[in-house]
Structure formats: C-alpha cells, structure tokens
Design a protein around this nucleic acid. Structure first.
Lengths: 239, 239
DNA sequence: CCAAGTGAAATTATAATACAAAATAGTTGC
DNA sequence: GCAACTATTTTGTATTATAATTTCACTTGG
C-alpha cells in the first residue's frame, strides 16, 4: 500500500475543515463573530493569507459572511449549502443525531427510486455494464469494507445512468446516508443475503428498461434500510 | 428605491464569476490549463492575492484543481457541484439548451411533489401562514414581476415547510427552473388563470394535512409547466 | 433636545514581494 | 538503459503595507 506523505501544504484546506467543523457542530453559533483575521490567523498558527482563502471557501458554502468593520460572522443555517459534500461530512463528523439520519433517509426515498426509474429509461449499454460490474463486486465481496465500497459504487453508477448531472450531484447525499448506515447498522452477513437480491432486482429492471419495476425495487430497498437503521439509531444527544 | 452604490470591492467575487462563466460555458474546456497565476492576475488586472481567493472558491465548487508545477486545470464536469447556485446560474447565463431545461423540469418533478407531501405532513402553523401569505401575493399580483416574485416565494416556503433542510437546499434548482420558465414562457395573463388555482389546491392540501392530495396537485402543476415550456423551447445551439 | 452631518476607528479587501515546497523535466554518471 | 541527482516551473505560504467600507461617537446647527 502506498501511503500519502504528510504534507504541510494545502494549509487553507485544513483551516476550512477546522472552522467548518466548528460551525456545523455549533461551537460557533449563528450570528456569532469569528475573531478578526489577524487574531484568528495567529491563534491557528497560519498566515492571514491562508486564513482568508479558507474564509472565502466557507463563504462560498454559505456558512459565514464577511463585512468590513463588522467582521466575519456565522450565518443562519438556512443559508448553508446543506448538500455540499463537506458540509454533510461535518454534520456526520460527530455522531449524527437521529433526526438528521431520518432526513438523509427521506432524501434517499425521494432521489433513488426516481433515479432508478430514469436509469431504466435512459441508461446506455456502457452504463448498464458498469452497473453490472458494481453488482458483481458486491456479490464477490468477502469482507465488510469491500461490500461497502461496491455498494456505494452501485448507487453512484445508478445515479450516473440516469443521465441527469443534477441528479448525479445528489450522490453526496446518498454517500453520506450510506456512510451513516454502515456506521449504525449491525455488522453481520445476514444483511447481505437480503440486500444482494434487492440490488439484483434493480439491476435487472434497469437492464430490461422497466422504469416502474426499477422504482418499486428501489423503494423496497431503501425502505428496508430505513427499518434497519430505525431499530438501531439512538436518541439525539441534545435538543 | 435604494440603489446599491457601485463598488470596486469584492474583486475576488467578480473573478469567480468571470472564470466560472467561462468554464461552464465551455470556453475553458475540461483538462485545459488556466494561465499561471501571475500571468492570469495580470491579464485580469487583479493581484495574485485576489485571483487566488477566486481559485480557491472555484476549486471548492469542483470546477478546477490546482497542483504545483502542473498548474490549475479545469476538471471534468462530473466533478462539478452542479447543484451550486452559482454553477446553475452560469449555465443559464447564456440561453440554456433544451436538454438542460428538460433536466431542470425532471428535477422539479422529483423534488416538488415530494416536498409538497412532506409539507402536508409536517408543516407548522406559522409555515402554513407564511405559505398563505405567498399565495395571496400571487393572487394580488398585477404585473409579471410581482407574480414571478410571489410564485418563487411560494415554492420556497413550501420547500421550507417540509422541514428538511436538505430538501430546502434544493431550492436553488427550483429557482433556476422557474427563472428559465419565466424567460421561455409566453407573457400573458391566461397562464395565471390556470396556475393560481393549482397553487391554491396545493395550499389547501397542505392546510388540511393531506400528503397525497398535495403530491398529486403538485405533480399536475409541474406537469403543466413542462408542457408550457416544451412547446416554446428551441433546439440547442450546438451539440 | 434632536437631526443631520462629520470624522475617527475598526475591520476586511487588495496589492506587492519574498521565499518555500512540490512536481516535472532534464541531465549526468554509471 | 537506468538510476540518481539537479534544475526549473508553478503553486503554496508568509509578511507587510495600504485602501476601502462601515460603524459609531461626536459635533454642530436649528
């Protein structure tokens, strides 16, 4: 295995994650001001340059807002780009609350059946082959990690096969949902025995170009995930 | 009316839009390198500082990627944050292609009925009142601009009433879709006579907490928009 | 006392410069 | 021919200085 060398570069990216995490975790509350740039840069041991680049990125994600004289303050969550992969990641950095998991599942229930139907209508031959490949990787998986990777890949390829790049961009949501699913659900082989044929049903419907069959199969799949999570998720730590 | 003073500030934001537009419009193609920072800064008459802040923002949106020695290159569109409000805006800056409009409509068909149903289930009293307010603004609208603003507001409030911030964040898509709809559709009062009662039906279903009624009403509304656009949209300019 | 204007102060915005680090390409020695 | 070293190019970071904007206190005229 090739290990990536530790780099002191991309400092601004580290700052983005540090501050992003703090904000999303609620340690920096909406309306609250960040320390002024010079001070904050010193506190984080980076130059004002790197800090400012991070601030611009977080502004682009809607988390903060800078104004002269006033300073930089955390914006109300309604302005956050909640679908941004980083923002989703930060929300899951700590144990996600039950309500957040519920929202993720709801999004899956909306997106994935529609994507499956669209894929069944519009998928190309190459996309079908790509999907089959992912399914076979799932079937061949011997350990949990391999399964998780293949599963994620299957759902990504299905979304791509819908041939609507706006839908594909929602993969960040599916990815986050599946990620928390794997963290929360039990680690036993019996789940596979249920999940694998469900994926096969979706695949076959896409192959045969049967949108409604694909939709129903996916509804069933996501519904089962929901039940699986519900039984195991814990109450939110606060609020 | 208060006019905002013209400012030479937020230069980096202007650079973001300039480059973003160029990339999304395809004038800078995927795989292609941007001029190196020093040069590009000079060409755009900004400092390297401002340019770099813009580059970081565009990187966060997935449009470009920087590496030492190699330079900064445009990424493949599959990596773009297609749901980002700016990216959507840049795609519509030029006349949107027929296929893009179709994709927007498809997204509406997936999101809005689900949102209407969820709102009917979970809306608060305050959210219902807010929705009513928007509906009444639509009913009271005398000119097209007022109508467009109120219409947009109605759809935004409906999304918020679903009480799932991930869904709310999809408003950027709805906004873009409605924006192109207003640009492409005929400007006559007869549309209102059809659209207004459709919005009322959605509102009433949300009021009465009837998810399936709300869903069906919304499916009808979006479907009619689709037909309205389809008859008027033109073929793509190229490809 | 109040209104409007005025100026000082605080903070971000921009610029310019210097140097560091990484990745590539080229070059040399074997 | 290949490996190791070296040079070069480009982005990454740091530092400093100055500009622009907005707020807020203060003044001044009524």
């Amino acid at each position: 295995m090739v290990v990536k060398p530790i780099t002191v570069h991309n400092l601004h990216k580290q700052v983005v994650h540090e501050l992003g995490r703090l904000i999303v975790a609620g340690e920096l509350k909406p309306g609250e001001n960040l320390p002024r740039e010079e001070l904050l840069a010193e506190q984080m041991s980076v130059s004002r340059t790197a800090l400012r680049e991070a601030i611009k990125v977080l502004s682009a994600k809607g988390l903060i807002e800078s104004r002269q004289k006033t300073g930089t303050r955390v914006r109300d969550p309604i302005y956050w780009n909640q679908l941004d992969a980083d923002v989703l990641g930060w929300r899951c950095a700590s144990m996600p609350t039950e309500s957040f998991v519920e929202k993720l599942v709801e999004m899956r229930e909306i997106i994935e059946p529609a994507a499956a139907a669209a894929a069944a209508r519009r998928r190309t031959t190459a996309q079908l082959a790509s999907l089959k490949e992912a399914y076979e990787a799932m079937a061949a998986a011997t350990d949990l990690d391999a399964w998780a990777v293949a599963d994620l890949s299957f759902h990504e390829r299905l979304l791509r096969a819908a041939n609507n790049e706006l839908m594909s961009s929602l993969f960040s949501v599916i990815e986050t949902a599946l990620g928390t699913y794997f963290r929360l659900s039990a680690r036993n082989a019996s789940n596979f025995n249920v999940a694998l044929p469900q994926h096969l049903k979706v695949y076959e419907a896409v192959q045969r170009k049967q949108p409604e069959v694909a939709r129903q199969a996916m509804i069933k799949m996501v519904g089962d995930s929901r039940n699986n999570i519900r039984r195991r998720a814990r109450k939110p730590t606060r609020s």
